[in-house]
């Protein structure tokens, strides 16, 4: 057995197998995405590899049928508010987690990790119950608050190493010259943390755009984001042409992937899954 694995031929065969499996997987992923794009552009597609002809009219149909302009406005409002608020509460918390020692720090870290480890559906249902009791369920504020639950801790975890990289002597020097914490934040930390805040903001933006469960559980008819509207469109299939649903799916893909393209210039892809490496218990 040992000799079998050690031989160079076996090594090569193993690597080739991995390569073929990976290629097969990537091809399928690309095909699943491509089929949505092709269908949204097709006139009629009953059989065959491609539709009978190509058209852009499904996009105007989808725009009118699904009131995409209104949905896009809501999506932008929710995503913008979640990014802003999560940075606002997350960056100061990350500063504390990176710089200070205090009693109960381990517990605080656990509290920041839990919302990232527990899947949204599990806490989304009690959360939606509470939000509906407070009268916030079904409103855009309920959607924003629900999306803050994973977003704010995510910012804390992404920003902590960025704060750690900044030399503490800079703050000491500013303090010697009489700067208060607020001034230090405004004049020293925030300018130096801008690259990190950009990465964290982009990651939160993408996660919010594709966050289905929490938005689905808390949104009302006029506070749906694009991904929830897409789900309802598929759910109520049969009423409308599938191409028009796919046109909406392409609009959703475009709004998400633009940010991904931008983010990939700043962020390592492994950061998107939220590295939990540093927080080993």
């Amino acid at each position: 057995m040992q000799g079998l694995f050690a031989s160079p031929v076996a090594q090569k065969a193993w690597n080739t197998t991995l390569f073929v499996v990976m290629l097969f997987f990537l091809l399928n992923v690309l095909a699943v995405i491509a089929v949505v794009v092709v269908n949204s552009l097709g006139q009629r597609w009953f059989g065959g590899w491609l539709p009978d002809g190509f058209t852009l009219r499904w996009y105007s149909t989808a725009w009118a049928e699904f009131q995409l302009s209104a949905i896009l406005v809501v999506t932008a409002q929710v995503a913008g508010a979640v990014v802003f608020l999560s940075l606002l509460v997350g960056v100061p918390a990350a500063y504390v987690m990176a710089r200070l020692r205090f009693r109960g720090k381990g517990l605080v870290l656990l509290l920041f990790l839990l919302p990232l480890l527990v899947p949204p559906v599990t806490y989304g249902i009690p959360l939606a119950t509470v939000l509906y009791q407070m009268g916030l369920g079904g409103t855009i504020w309920g959607v924003i608050l629900a999306n803050l639950v994973p977003a704010a801790p995510f910012v804390v975890l992404v920003m902590t190493p960025f704060v750690e990289q900044i030399d503490g002597k800079l703050e000491d020097a500013a303090r010697v010259f009489g700067a208060g914490t607020l001034t230090i934040f405004r004049r020293i930390l925030v300018p130096l943390l801008l690259p990190g805040m950009l990465s964290a903001g982009l990651l939160v933006l993408m996660r919010t755009l594709s966050m289905f469960e929490l938005t689905f559980l808390t949104a009302g008819a006029d506070s749906q984001t694009l991904v929830v509207a897409l789900y309802y469109a598929v759910f109520a299939a049969g009423v409308r042409a599938p191409q028009s649903t796919d046109a909406m799916a392409v609009v959703y893909m475009a709004t998400t992937l633009i940010w991904l393209l931008l983010a990939l210039r700043f962020v390592d892809p492994t950061q998107m899954v939220g590295r939990v490496k540093a927080q080993r218990a």
């Binding site: 699943v32 995405i33 289905f212 897409l230 598929v234 893909m253 998400t256 892809p269």
Partner: peptide
């Protein structure tokens, strides 16, 4: 890694919509 980040970014709803046709 760049290709694989796409399905994660798009999420389960879009993957399901694509698979319905695929």
């Amino acid at each position: 890694t760049t290709i694989l980040v796409v399905p994660i970014t798009l999420g389960t709803v879009l993957a399901a919509e694509g698979l319905l046709s695929y």
